[in-house]
Design a binder for these strands. Sequence first.
RNA 1: GUGAUUGUAGCUCAGUUGGUUAGAGCGCCUGGUUGUGGUCCAGGAGGCCGCGGGUUCAAAUCCCGUCUUUCACCCCA
Length: 412
Amino acid sequence: MASHEFQPLQGMSDIHAPEIYLWRMIEERARTLFNSYGYEELRTPSLEKLSVFKRSIGDATDVVQKEMYAFKDRGDRELALRPEGTAGTIRHLAGLGEEGLNSRVFYIAPMFRCERPQAGRKRQFHPVGVEATGVPNPLADAECIALQQNLLEAWGLTGSTIKINSRGTKEDQKLIAENLRELLEPVRSDLCEDCQRRMDENVLRVIDCKNPTCKEIAATLPEMRSFMTQESQDYLNTVIETLSEMGVAVEYDRSLVRGLDYYVNTVWEITHGALGSQNSIAGGGRYEIALGKKGVPGVGFAMGIERVITSLEACGITAEQFAPKGGTWLVSLGADALIENMKLARELRNQGVRCGMELAAKSMKAQMRKANREGVERVIIRGDEEIAKGTVIVKDMAEGSQEEINLRDVIV
RNA sequence: GUGAUUGUAGCUCAGUUGGUUAGAGCGCCUGGUUGUGGUCCAGGAGGCCGCGGGUUCAAAUCCCGUCUUUCACCCCA
């Protein structure tokens, strides 16, 4: 492990057993649930034209400006590894014409961001996300959040909180920004350095600054929604009320903003206490993404599998619980038995039995030790005697008992 | 990008103020009489002490660089 010759790149990891079984559980249950909601799986390329991300995520966002793996290929084309899933998904859907403007798709795929790794942040990370396109409808937003709630339940994850807010329409956002700047200007020098910068670049972010002084100042500001049109306020209220009807608990959070440019109206976030500084396991929201001539309206979310796993582990859910166990181990005594067991293993495996055997000539003791470590339920022992008689010895590993039976009785 | 932090056997870690052949536990392998696991006992294999420079008679130990780990800021999943 010390030699970096065998290490993956910084912030990237090999996902192997037993952890992989937790990944598979998460992915399988997500696919099943998405299917029940009528979502189709979509796999877009990991590499896209840089412009796909610039236009949808926002040219000025940190994600685009300093976090993307962007480069020119041999043909001098500007490309980037996807830093998130929505842009590529919408690129695909927009290309479908009318049909794409009313679709439901999900993805489970690696994304890349060249940042300094830290708890809950890898350079290659794996969100599971959904996108539902269609004209803005608060019921669609509510259903999307309800789906997410179902997903958490399916995984067995408890102790998370769903926070919700609205950023209003694009027009509202302009008004909000203007008003906030005006209100903040007199106290500009009291804000932290970052927030003074944010005032010019992205005022909304001042609202969710962690700095105590900024927090105090933010608390004195009117809620964002007070600058929105009545229609926008009603939209948010309908989402919250619908969720309440459906029995999904959400928490209105006036300081929730989220960073990507494409968000309009509803935005939400799911946090979990086990996570540390990067405490959000999921983010979502309604968006309006301009690609080509038309804007694609939709709603969606992304949940980081790495962060979900950290949260699950805090709930006492481990990968070992999902590791395959049981099955049969074949012990061979002598060269003939080895070949005979190769044939028997094949038949058992064809029947779906998890079946293993040592392929090299090893002592019986070594073979039994291996069987024990594999955690199999039974061991089948064969030597020259048994082959001559057409029998096998079957040993129950938990009981320690064994009996000799006919070979043909092994294969049901 | 900024600021800390880590790096010694497969894994978790010891390694004293620089000083002989670098240790432990777990794991692994082989045995404990003919073909029987999990417990026990005995033995064994396995280390460019992250990498590259430097200081020194002497470096795992001190200095510099580099890569990596972990954590925080920024930002986000």
